[in-house]
């Protein structure tokens, strides 16, 4: 358990590991500190309170939340298939799952356009049959964000499932529970921490999504201009403003993630050890 007092005679951790870990911390924190130092603190308040910024922030939070829900809905079952079935070609499927991680997001956006765009493989039928066009809508933002964020969720849940013992699922089967019932009542609650970790990664990735969004969904205030897009455009004219907007995005995402964590963790404590 975390926070337990270690025995005093435990040997000290290797210096090399500590040194490299310290470098890692500097590596992560350094650029962020530089951002903090150069931030236009005196203007920060005004920048945050401005209408367009709040609009972009609100859109970002809404779309990232929707994308996370979409990823949970689709990604948890996919992870289950990867971890718990003997489906042929699972290795290939796992590789396909990680594709959006490797693909430059802009290419992902183009790929989404060629599928769901007005002249896309699927999109052209959506247009002629239903008069629906996906690009340039908030829905397109959610799709783009979910596309790039899904691997984070699937990999996290897949890992949690594979390291979770199947013994409880076997026990449930001997009690006559179908795999679906077992999945809902046993598997899912037991891997909840892994699902939570995946959802957090997924949300963070969706919140920071830029390339696929601007390519597939476009950029229009209130509809598709999320915070990262607003930051990019601010960079073109006023880098200081871009820095300020980045800080807002970082601050809000940290607040959301920490808030969620404490909520979930308190809900989970007292559960499985």
């Amino acid at each position: 358990m975390v926070g337990r007092v270690r025995p005093r005679r435990r040997s000290r951790p290797p210096v090399l590991l500590l040194a490299l870990a310290a470098v890692a911390v500097l590596f992560l924190v350094g650029p962020f500190v530089a951002l903090l130092v150069t931030a236009p603190w005196s203007r920060l308040g005004g920048l945050i309170a401005s209408g367009p910024v709040l609009q972009a922030l609100w859109l970002s939070l809404r779309t990232a939340t929707a994308a996370t829900v979409l990823c949970l809905l689709l990604g948890v079952p996919l992870a289950w298939v990867l971890a718990r079935t003997a489906l042929p070609g699972r290795g290939l499927l796992r590789a396909v799952t990680t594709m959006p991680l490797v693909l430059p997001p802009v290419v992902g956006g183009v790929a989404l356009l060629t599928l769901l765009g007005r002249r896309g493989l699927l999109g052209r039928h959506l247009d002629t049959w239903f008069g629906v066009t996906v690009p340039f809508t908030s829905t397109a933002v959610v799709i783009a964000e979910a596309f790039v964020a899904l691997p984070f969720l699937v990999l996290a849940v897949d890992g949690a499932l594979r390291s979770a013992d199947e013994q409880y699922e076997q026990a449930a089967a001997t009690l006559g529970a179908t795999r679906w019932y077992t999945f809902r009542r046993i598997t899912l609650p037991l891997v909840a921490p892994g699902v939570l970790a995946g959802a957090v990664l997924c949300f963070a990735r969706a919140l920071g999504e830029f390339g696929a969004t601007i390519t597939f969904a476009g950029n229009y205030p209130g509809t598709t201009r999320t915070m990262p897009l607003a930051i990019y455009l601010a960079m073109e004219q006023d880098p200081a403003q871009a820095v300020a907007l980045s800080l807002v995005l970082i601050g809000v995402s940290l607040a959301v993630l920490i808030g969620l964590r404490t909520r979930w963790l308190s809900a989970l404590t007292g559960g499985p050890s």
Binding site: R118, R119, F136, N219, Y220, L233
Partner: peptide
């Protein structure tokens, strides 16, 4: 009355090339 403000001229052109 645009539907999107693209980030540069190449992206703008691409939207027309793709027929979006």
């Amino acid at each position: 009355a645009p539907d999107t403000y693209e980030k540069d001229v190449t992206a703008t052109l691409t939207k027309a090339v793709l027929g979006e």
